[in-house]
Amino acid sequence: MSSNTNLDIWFAGAFAAFTVDLLVYPLDTLKTRLQSQDYEKLYRNSNGTLNRSLFRGLYQGVGSIILITIPSSGAFFTTYEALKYGLKDLVPPNSTIYLPQPAIHAVASGTAELVSCAILTPAEVLKQNAQMLSAGTRRSTSLEVLRHFRKHPARLWRGYTALAARNLPFTALQFPAFESLKGYFMKRRQLKKGGQAVDGIFERARITALSAGIAGSGAAWITTPVDVVKTRIMLAAGSGDDGPKKDLKAKSSNWLLNGVRGTGKSGFDVAREILKAEGVRGLFRGALLRACWTSIGSGLYLGCYEGGRFYLEDARQETNERDTSLQNDWSKVKVGIGGSRSQDVVKKSAWQDD
């Protein structure tokens, strides 16, 4: 079991989230725009070519997601690590009860995801609506979107069910596969080193990143339909798709005001509409981009987390060892009993001989 404290795990998760959000956020913006119900109208020209606006403002909304992702990621990993080891400890040694490792990892990651989603949902709604604004606005895109939720702040939590419905199967697929692949690669690396343990920070981070990338890309592809539905619901919370349609290429503030009411459609209703209008292909829109983005993001995310966690663990162990080496064993020191070394070595002075 790891000797990390909850604070170590929290800092490692927050550092990983901050790093990944900065590096792969543009790909997430492209994915959101591809999955939008207004993709054809906003980002394709009449001749079928891509509009340049698709690639503008790729960091719109990054501020809100970074601020919230840091605590949500810390909460996720703290819950995940606690449950992963806690569930193992529930089963006593030599017990007839058997809990498979994949089941433990799935339950731990699923519960951690529910905690994380409760914190993350408002920022996710702000982020995805900010990603759809026209680039070039003078104001912060996150503040521009937030301004339209002042009268309906509860709408910031619209999409929690959709977010959890996407993330639960994703993490339930990813983490058991990730833990299994990491164990497999660790054993292979250990055999190549002649049985020595793999304890290098960068080496462990590299193996973790490779395992997470493979597991994440597969889970992302499978769960793309739920992600498309989630994107549509969250965009509807800020833009709405009920009522009379207006010019979608108008100013960003008008675009938000047109549909600030949002819709009350369920995820099944949204999925049914996508199937009817776009077919199965519509449910898998952006699947390749999402798989590539998740492979890079998961690899960096869990790789940074693992590297940061073991760095903090090593630093803590070195500090403890240093403190222990400075402590003396005073139990064997005798005070005032018998002769001392000073009495044997030091001779009497000349005036004492008199």
Rank of each mutant, 00 (worst) to 15 (best):
K245Y: 12
R147A: 10
R33C: 14
A112K: 00
T137Q: 07
R316M: 11
D28F: 15
F185Y: 06
V24I: 10
E40M: 06
R189Q: 05
I222L: 11
L256C: 10
K348W: 10
P93D: 08
G57D: 03
Q35A: 10
I68P: 01
H105M: 12
I222Q: 02
D314Y: 11
R52M: 09
I222H: 05
V228C: 00
L58M: 02
N47E: 03
W351P: 06
G200V: 03
W330Q: 11
F202W: 11
I97G: 05
P71W: 07
R285T: 15
G183R: 07
Q352I: 04
K249H: 14
G286K: 09
D227N: 12
P225E: 04
G86M: 06
L143A: 02
S53M: 13
Y43Q: 06
L248A: 01
N51P: 04
I66C: 01
S142V: 06
F170E: 03
S36T: 14
L114K: 04
G200H: 02
S3F: 09
S217H: 01
A220C: 02
N254I: 09
G86D: 05
N6G: 10
G216D: 03
I104Y: 14
M132D: 14
Q35T: 12
G74L: 00
V91S: 09
I119N: 08
Q190P: 12
Q196I: 02
A118H: 08
T29D: 08
A236F: 08
Q317M: 14
L312Y: 15
A12S: 12
G243L: 09
P71T: 07
G240S: 10
L163I: 04
F149I: 08
G216K: 01
W330H: 07
D247S: 02
W351K: 15
R188T: 07
L126N: 04
R281P: 03
A17L: 01
V270T: 14
G338F: 02
V346P: 00
S211N: 06
T231S: 08
W221L: 06
S46E: 12
T294W: 03
K193Y: 07
V145F: 00
S331E: 01
T141F: 08
R341H: 02
L256Q: 12
G240P: 09
G48W: 01
S239A: 03
T5P: 04
G262T: 10
A177F: 04
D314G: 05
A197H: 13
T294V: 11
F18C: 02
I104G: 13
D269E: 15
Y301M: 00
V270R: 11
V229I: 13
I337Y: 01
S266N: 14
K348L: 15
E321M: 04
L168P: 01
V345A: 08
A220W: 06
P176H: 06
R281Q: 13
G308L: 03
S73Y: 01
S134T: 15
T96E: 15
V346T: 02
Y39S: 15
T49K: 11
A154P: 01
E321D: 05
S342A: 03
T49W: 10
C304M: 09
L289R: 05
E321S: 06
I201K: 08
E113I: 13
K332F: 00
G13F: 00
D269Y: 14
A112P: 00
R150E: 15
D353F: 11
K251T: 10
G282I: 10
A209Y: 06
